[in-house]
């Protein structure tokens, strides 16, 4: 994400409410008391109340939106939930004609393509974060950071377009044969390789989640106090030892958070994956083989789903996707918050 405040985040000091401590009561408690007094005596008390209410309404509409999404997803998937129960997530057949729906192939496809993406993107993102933070010459730093964040601004469908016409042929003609030759014995890379499949989906997802992981882990690494770095350097550590001992160790929680945020994005990504994964509900070990993900099956079949049960099954898939991404994002946010909050407390 290109958050405008990301670069400046550490400089923003959160205004601290004056503490009514005994020692410095006079200088710090006074403004607050004056403000309260003025606000209470203000001519616009009623207008103030109304304004506050309006702002609050808008803020609470965020709760309402989330609640409404959950409500419609649960309500509209009742038919499928009652028909299949928990078996829905264990069934492997997806047959709209006979009305038999099982989501396991889609869950498998989603998990495998996302994990593949994370496995490719994490080492690269961390290396780039370290490069930009410590190695890169100053004049190059901001252009490269801007370029990597530009990747985040490219829409999913454009990634898909590029992948269909450029990445797929490369994976089929150049990368595929090499992997098959050297790693074919593992069973993960078995011909025939048409270029569209799980591996290509993983690669395009990796390119898409790279900017998120890289920019957030750069921020949490930046949050490590300078004193920690200097202490390590003063003990004679090389740059790598300093990074390992003071930077990576102190920011590991936030880095894990960044990785999980990237994973959350990969799990829900729709368009680019739909265009290159092959869209075939199989559970195969072979990464060259086509797969299908939760998001892709919704994108492909939702608007032409005939019959209430079919539609309901697709909405249940949406519900599952929603719940999984909510949990993954909540964990990631808590981890990132834990780190950055500790940092702001350390500054104060």
């Amino acid at each position: 994400m290109m958050q405008p405040g990301l670069d400046k985040l550490p400089e923003i000091t959160v205004p601290v409410e004056p503490q009514p401590s005994a020692a410095d009561a006079a200088p710090s408690a006074a403004p607050s008391a004056i403000r309260l007094f003025l606000q209470q005596r203000s001519a616009g008390r009623w207008a103030d109340g109304a304004f506050r209410g309006l702002m609050m309404l808008c803020a609470f509409s965020i709760f309402a939106i989330v609640a409404l999404i959950v409500f419609v997803l649960v309500k509209n998937s009742q038919l499928s939930i009652h028909a299949f129960g928990f078996k829905f997530f264990k069934g492997t057949s997806w047959d709209p004609v006979s009305g038999d729906f099982g989501a396991l192939p889609f869950i498998y496809g989603t998990v495998v393509s996302s994990l593949l993406a994370v496995a490719i993107a994490v080492p690269l993102s961390l290396c780039v974060a370290i490069f930009l933070l410590d190695i890169c010459p100053r004049p190059l730093r901001s252009p490269i950071a801007f370029l990597t964040e530009l990747l985040a601004a490219i829409p999913s469908v454009v990634y898909g377009l590029w992948a269909v016409f450029i990445l797929v042929p490369i994976m089929r003609d150049n990368v595929g044969p090499i992997l098959e030759k050297y790693l074919g014995w593992t069973g993960f890379f078995v011909e025939p390789n048409f270029g569209v499949g799980m591996l290509t989906a993983g690669v395009i997802l990796a390119i898409m989640i790279f900017p998120i992981i890289s920019s957030i882990s750069r921020d949490v690494m930046k949050a490590v106090p300078i004193a920690q770095r200097e202490a390590a350097l003063a003990l004679g550590a090389t740059r790598w030892e300093m990074l390992r001992m003071s930077v990576l160790r102190n920011s590991r929680l936030g880095i894990v958070g960044a990785i999980i945020l990237g994973l959350g994005r990969a799990l829900g990504e729709t368009m680019a994956v739909t265009m290159v994964i092959g869209n075939h509900p199989d559970i195969l070990k072979n990464l060259f083989a086509p797969g299908y993900t939760l998001a892709s099956v919704i994108a492909n079949e939702f608007s032409e789903a005939s019959g209430d049960l079919y539609l309901s099954a697709l909405i249940e898939i949406g519900l599952a996707l929603f719940l999984v991404t909510i949990v993954v994002n909540a964990i990631a946010r808590l981890l990132v918050w834990a780190v950055t909050r500790g940092e702001s407390a350390g500054h104060a």
Partner: peptide
């Protein structure tokens, strides 16, 4: 972080 496709369903 909610996937955009879920927004579409909603």
């Amino acid at each position: 972080g909610v996937p955009s496709i879920v927004m579409g369903i909603a």
